[in-house]
Design a binder for these strands. Structure first.
Length: 192
DNA sequence: AACGACTACAACCGCTCTGCC
DNA sequence: GGGCAGAGCGGTTGTAGTCGT
């Protein structure tokens, strides 16, 4: 890995590679005391040769409580497929609907399992279903702007703030998906 | 047993957005 | 309003494990 070596030589990179159990426990310890914010501070307080960004990623994807590992169920898979159809590659939004799943895990699962399967299906049907609805780069959530997913459907038909408010319902409830799909499909029909 | 190809997933990188001064 | 640091996101890469020859 030549580029990494170059950056390491510049002092831009600390420790790299897989996390050890010792590093994990140190990180968890510091977060328990200081909370999961100020990652730069956390990294230095833990005495890890890792950047704050790396610590955050490790915590968010693996160390956080209530993280589910492996064994994506059929129900979850179905939900991922539906959500991807709606939202495209917006993994954090999709993850928000799958309790215990992280955006990284869903993204990996999509890239290694679902995209391949869908591509095969698409080839047999002569379409390219891996193409999501896409979006401009940037992390502004749909809840914050109310704009991006709303562009796919008529805004007066759907309350986007309510749609992306995950606070007071069961995340695995599929009714909202069906409801959204109905509105979405209607919007597509009128466009064509 | 050895080796190359493939797969799955952990981790990193670059970019954008937000909040604070 | 501008600059900076922190946080978050999606894309990409690295690598260990598995499989086929």
């Amino acid at each position: 890995m030549a580029s990494t070596e170059k950056r390491a030589a510049k002092g831009l990179i600390l420790s790299k590679g897989a996390w050890t159990p010792e590093e994990d426990s140190k990180l968890a310890e510091v977060i328990a005391v200081h909370g999961a914010k100020r990652w730069k501070t956390i990294a230095s307080k833990a005495g890890l040769q890792r950047c704050g960004k790396s610590c955050r990623l490790r915590w968010m994807n693996y160390l956080r409580p209530n993280i589910k590992r492996g064994n994506i169920t059929n129900q979850e898979e179905d939900l991922i497929l539906r959500l991807h159809k709606l939202l495209g590659n917006r993994w954090s939004l999709i993850a928000g609907r799958l309790p215990g799943r992280t955006d990284n895990e869903i993204k990996n699962y999509w890239n290694s399992h679902l995209s391949k399967r869908i591509r095969q299906k698409g080839e047999s049907q002569g379409v390219d279903p891996t193409r999501g609805c896409g979006r401009p780069r940037g992390r502004k959530s749909a809840a914050a702007t109310g704009a991006e997913p709303g562009e796919m459907i008529s805004s007066d038909a759907f309350d986007m703030d309510e749609f992306f408010d995950f606070s007071n319902e069961s995340p695995m409830n599929l009714e909202w998906v069906s409801s959204f799909l109905q509105h979405y499909n209607r919007g597509q029909d009128t466009e064509e």
